[in-house]
Design a protein around this nucleic acid. Structure first.
Length: 644
RNA sequence: GCUCACGUAGCUCAGUCGGCCAGAGCGUAUCCUUGGUAAGGAUAAGGUCACCGGUUCGAUUCCGGUCGUGAGCUCCA
């Protein structure tokens, strides 16, 4: 609408969000304009949105326009800030280790990274040195300059520098695309930008860790060294972030698992978890809840063997598609495999009799222990293991029941996660490269899942090519204490297994038909869900899950008799109770119970013996005063039942 | 699987630039203490310094390999 003209000295009008309009001379940069407008804003501004497009502050204003100033509080602002930080780090690395080639260096949530190809690998000790150099570059306050170049020029620049990764990136850019670079002093990087106007705009900077990363995420390509870091405009923000990381480490399920004596791992079985008495209590409670809810939701429970003949796995397609992840054994000279999935077993149960459309939907659930050979480097506490129990179910149904059944599972998942207070996000995964079945089948199955999500208005992300080999899936992801996400629930539509196993049902027409089927889990894997729960609650499980729900603490030996009576009564009422009658002071016993995150501590002195009562202390609410023994028993039983 | 780092008592961690009996705190055991809401005191036990080789007069320490663990990549519930 607004025609630009090339007459110099002409005035143009800029409408600035939250700051009204401003008249400037054509050609004034955004930064210059801000200087006239407001010093604080100029200081906080990182980039701007000019007529909807995010640009550098050095961008000259050439026509009437609308402008929005981006600060660190805007997600885009923070990204630009971190992106510049990554360039500065790369410059520092270049200065210190001249002979290093650059990979990529994007901002990520809470920070940034940059990938480098060093001639000799650096060690974590080098980070300090790099950090010092970064500080130096910030101090030098070097301006960042955007340069737009032709493809040939870009190739020339980076070829001359020996930056063959950058050359590869440029070569892969579509023809005709403007190629931009950012220069700061002697350092130049291929980058779309935008960036901060100068390195001095960065403030508090911290390099966090060093890791390996394949070039372009491809395991067949060279491995680079990735340096992770973060940057904030205020010291306090950086400190808060580092503090958050520290707190998150305290909630790490691997640490809490040890401290609370829940589970362990051993060299004798890497990736194979050992549940301790306290850990198995939590798991059994989760299972109990699961059985109750599944019974209500109309599921039938089954159990199938751990080891089954090779023939079955050939029939299911696992032999062909999943062999690398399976464990094998021989029985009487015949090949057997330890099940990596529960479905083939359920197929055999399905086939033990004639099925009628009247039986549908047939919801067959199984807490099935599966074993998978996961790559050693991927193991991670209970989150990623080699043997785990899936709260599996296979639903056999009429094709027209798919939508309502998928919807039903989604409701069940939502209900479960709400009970634990988890928030989650949903992803839809489509056909992988290595897949069974025709494109039409995949198309049909994928759009069925998509339509359920769309109809329910559930936001989801699409993961192209991430489906199971037998069908597309809807995944439910939860976050751990550090914000890393883990797939838990999943709903997988499968038109393959029914074919492979020649499943049938008798329809109303008296003829045989092929049933539709879904695989689904709600918790996902009990191990992973348990790990997430530990981190979610920081080890302080809600009463109904707590391994020890109450601890009886007699003050002296005199109260031991009555304390034992309290202990026995609670135990008979199925409360998980322990007694601490060691000759230690009350304070000591309380401290230990607090550290172990026991919900209720029952202190018993002479007064309580006399009154047949208990002095109740709650791990979070503190001293709750004296309750009669019976009143406490009722109270705790009620709270357990209500899953408070 | 790959890159880098790490592996010392049940746990958390010192330490040894190659050399006498390898240390601390917590925990455990025994004794003293019987103390009212987050650590009472004393004594003791506890280690093939992950494992296997090599270098060396001598290795927990240096080198190589194996196993395990961590961060991340790849892969996945």
């Amino acid at each position: 609408m607004e025609e630009s003209s090339d007459r110099p000295g002409e005035k143009i009008v800029i409408r600035i969000k939250d700051w009204g309009s401003k008249e400037v001379t054509r050609g004034t940069t955004i930064l210059e304009m801000l200087g006239d407008l407001h010093q604080k804003l100029k200081k906080e501004a990182l980039a701007a949105r000019l007529n909807g497009k995010i640009v550098d502050l050095n961008t000259p204003l050439l026509e009437n326009a609308s402008l929005e100033i981006l600060t660190f509080d805007d997600p885009e602002g923070a990204e630009i800030y971190r992106h510049t930080a990554s360039h500065v780090m790369a410059q520092a690395v270049k200065r210190l280790y001249g002979n290093v080639r650059l990979g990529i260096g994007p901002p990520i949530s809470n920070g940034f990274y940059y990938d480098f190809d060093f001639t000799t690998p650096i060690s974590p000790d080098d980070l300090e040195k790099i950090e010092e150099q970064v500080k130096q570059i910030i101090k030098e306050d070097i301006p960042l300059q955007r340069i737009e170049v032709s493809r040939e020029e870009a190739l020339k620049i980076f070829r001359e520098k020996g930056e063959n990764f950058k050359v590869e990136l440029i070569s892969d850019l579509p023809e005709g695309e403007t190629i931009s670079c950012y220069r700061q002093g002697d350092f130049i990087d291929l980058c779309v930008g935008p960036h901060l106007p100068s390195t001095g705009r960065l403030n508090f900077f911290k390099l966090l860790n060093l890791a390996g990363a394949y070039w372009r995420g491809n395991e067949n390509k060279p491995m680079l060294q990735r340096i992770y870091g973060t940057a904030f405009p205020k010291q306090k923000m950086l400190e808060e972030y580092l503090h958050f990381l520290e707190e998150a480490r305290k909630r790490d399920h691997r640490k809490l698992g040890k401290e609370l004596d829940l589970f362990s791992f051993h060299e004798e079985g890497p990736g194979f978890p050992f549940y301790h008495p306290r850990g198995i209590i939590v798991r059994r409670e989760l299972e109990k809840f699961w059985r109750d809810e599944h019974q209500k939701a109309g599921y039938l429970e089954v159990e199938t063997p751990l080891i089954l003949n090779r023939r079955l796995w050939e029939q299911s397609g696992h032999w062909e598609h999943y062999k690398e992840n399976m464990y094998f054994t021989k029985i009487d000279g015949q090949d057997y495999a330890i099940k990596p999935m529960n479905c083939p077993g359920s197929m055999l149960i399905y086939k033990t009799g004639m099925r009628s459309y009247r039986d549908f939907p047939l919801r067959m659930a199984e807490m099935g222990l599966v074993h998978r050979h996961e790559k050693s480097g991927t193991l991670h506490g209970l989150m990623r293991v080699r043997s785990f129990t899936q709260d599996d179910a296979h639903i056999f149904m009429l094709p027209e029941q798919i939508e309502s059944e998928v919807g039903g599972v989604m409701e069940l998942v939502d209900h479960f996660y709400k009970v634990f207070g988890f928030s989650y996000h949903v992803e839809l995964s489509t056909r992988p490269e290595k897949a069974m079945g025709s494109d039409e089948m995949w198309e049909k199955a994928t759009s069925a899942l998509q339509s359920v999500l769309d109809k329910r208005g559930i936001p989801y992300k699409i993961n192209e090519g991430d489906g199971a080999f037998y069908g597309p899936k809807i995944d439910f992801h939860l976050q751990d204490s550090l914000g890393r996400t883990w797939q838990c629930g999943t709903i997988q539509l499968d038109f393959q297994m029914p074919e492979k196993f020649d499943l049938s049902y008798i329809g109303p027409d008296g003829q045989k038909h092929r049933p539709a089927m879904i695989h689904r889990v709600v918790y996902g894997a009990m191990e992973r869900f348990f790990a997430l729960l530990i981190e979610h609650y920081g080890g302080a499980f809600p009463l109904w899950l707590a391994p020890v729900q109450a601890i009886v603490i007699p003050i002296t030996d005199r109260q031991r008799g009555y304390a034992l009576e309290v202990n026995d009564l609670l135990r008979h009422e199925k409360v998980r109770v322990e007694m601490d009658d060691r000759s230690e002071k009350v304070g000591y016993k309380i401290r230990e119970a607090q550290v172990q995150k026991v919900p209720y501590m029952l202190v018993i002195g002479d007064k309580e013996v006399e009154a047949h009562s208990v002095a109740v202390r709650h791990r979070e609410r503190g001293d709750l005063g004296i309750l009669s023994l019976n009143a406490f028993v009722e109270k705790i039983k009620e709270e357990i039942n209500e899953k408070k």
